[in-house]
Design a protein around this nucleic acid. Sequence first.
DNA 1: GTAAAAGATAGCCAAATTACTAACTATCTT
DNA 2: AAGATAGTTAGTAATTTGGCTATCTTTTAC
Lengths: 106, 106
Amino acid sequence: MTNRLDNFFGALSDPTRRAVIERLTEGPAPVKELHAPHDMALPTFLKHLSKLEEAGLVRTVKKGRVRTVHIEAAPLADAEDWLSKQRKVWEGRLDRLTQLAESKPK
Amino acid sequence: MTNRLDNFFGALSDPTRRAVIERLTEGPAPVKELHAPHDMALPTFLKHLSKLEEAGLVRTVKKGRVRTVHIEAAPLADAEDWLSKQRKVWEGRLDRLTQLAESKPK
DNA sequence: GTAAAAGATAGCCAAATTACTAACTATCTT
DNA sequence: AAGATAGTTAGTAATTTGGCTATCTTTTAC
């Protein structure tokens, strides 16, 4: 049962990769620019990028010698939905318990 | 920069652990019951549980020889917020681009 | 008070993850 | 056409992850 969500959440469990996503919300950027603020070797950074790409969180297009990366919103929405569903079920249950407690005679 | 979100997302990147969270939305349960549907040794399962606990996604209370596990909604909301923020910034940007494109003279 | 039940701890292993350096391929620029 | 620029690939090492078995401790239940 290897779920699509495995890759989504796995990709987001690393601060470097979350920082890349945050940067990309400001618009697409080439690999070099994305790499600049991170104190690690380029090949290491490329692996992070390819994890994001495998998880479907970003797409990349290479033109000439420059690879441009941009964010893909749909998976963010998917993960958000999963979390939201769990939270709502749970909070709904809490609400019902609260009602039960309140309807109890003192 | 080891973020709290590392553990949140890391904990949710495994199907066994997500299944436990889903089960717990129906209400608290003892370890034995949570373990039952998963085809793995108990110590292995316990490690998954403690990851969830380290991430703050569940709390556990031991009474007698039974440890009861329940879900903690707040972290779900936190992760949801992060995702939502990124998505909204990105989608907001898309909207502005669309407006730009539409306001261009043909 | 012995045995069963519920979980905890220790130690082991294979595979995946995250990092590095070194060397290579393409594509501009001059 | 030489050199610089932007990535890519290969190979290595340390750590973490996710799994196991075996053993141990603490509660109940009979």
